[in-house]
């Protein structure tokens, strides 16, 4: 166990990648706060699974794009756990459309959740981590934030923004013992990608040298590495976990 006694918060941990990340952090010894937007019962399932592992966990509803709820979420986590060692900014949505068809509302909602949400959670948790003189912030970006992707102008802009935010936050907080890194997943099998038509999925598969879609577990393993002492000399980096799609 590489995270014995650590206290973590994972946003968007009710489903998909966030759920698997939360479970892996717990397997490695961490207590984990499970944030969700609407899926209360799914979040509670994750909490039960973590408790079954002998770790502490609780579910906490919060829209990461709302600054007041984010502030009270972080307060709640500090009250329950006494500290926050690990923040995983994972909550994210897609509203895909061609640029020429994209509605302002589609643009705004993706930027608000996927980019502003990372800013708000990072800002709120930094107060606690600065006092501790230690902390790990891990941002879920996306490989398309590096490569671009037709039909995802809003999502790609947000994810490229997250990569830039990761580098800047890393520079600002390094002197306080806080590291900030990002993960750029490729095509991972979750609800988010399950929505895509089969021909699109097939075309994606052809671009993956390791010749399979990723599993949330592939992302969880790298997240727990970035949360652990093994990565203590890394900050501001974006790790591609994409089966070799973008090199």
């Amino acid at each position: 166990m590489i995270l014995e006694g650590k206290k973590a918060l994972v946003t968007g941990a009710s489903r998909g990648i966030g759920r698997e990340v939360a479970l892996e952090l717990a397997r490695q010894g961490a207590d984990v706060a499970i944030n969700y937007a609407g899926s209360e019962s799914k979040a509670n399932e994750v909490v039960s699974e973590i408790k079954a592992l002998g770790r502490k966990a609780f579910a906490i509803q919060c829209d990461v794009a709302n600054s007041e709820s984010v502030t009270s979420m972080i307060k709640e986590v500090v009250e329950q756990f006494g500290r926050v060692d690990i923040l995983v900014n994972n909550a994210g949505i897609t509203r895909d459309n061609l640029l020429m068809r994209m509605k302002e509302e589609e643009w705004d909602s993706v930027i608000n959740t996927n980019l502003k949400g990372v800013f708000l959670c990072t800002k709120a948790v930094t107060r606690q981590m600065m006092k501790q003189r230690s902390g790990r912030i891990i941002n879920m970006a996306s490989i398309v934030g590096v490569s671009g992707n037709a039909g995802q102008a809003n999502y790609v802009a947000a994810k490229a923004g997250v990569i830039g935010l990761t580098k800047t936050t890393a520079k600002e907080l390094a002197s306080r013992g806080i590291t900030v890194n990002a993960i750029a997943p490729g095509f991972i099998s979750t609800d988010m990608t399950g929505e895509l038509p089969e021909d699109v999925q097939k075309a994606m598969l052809d671009q993956i040298p390791l010749a399979r879609f990723g599993d949330p577990k592939d992302i969880a393993a790298v997240t727990s590495f970035l949360a652990s002492d093994a990565s203590k000399y890394m900050t501001g980096q974006t790790l591609h976990v994409d089966g070799g799609m973008v090199m």
Partner: peptide, 9 residues
């Protein structure tokens, strides 16, 4: 600048 932020905290 960061020291001042911490002082205020």
């Amino acid at each position: 600048s960061l020291d001042v932020v911490e002082l205020v905290m």
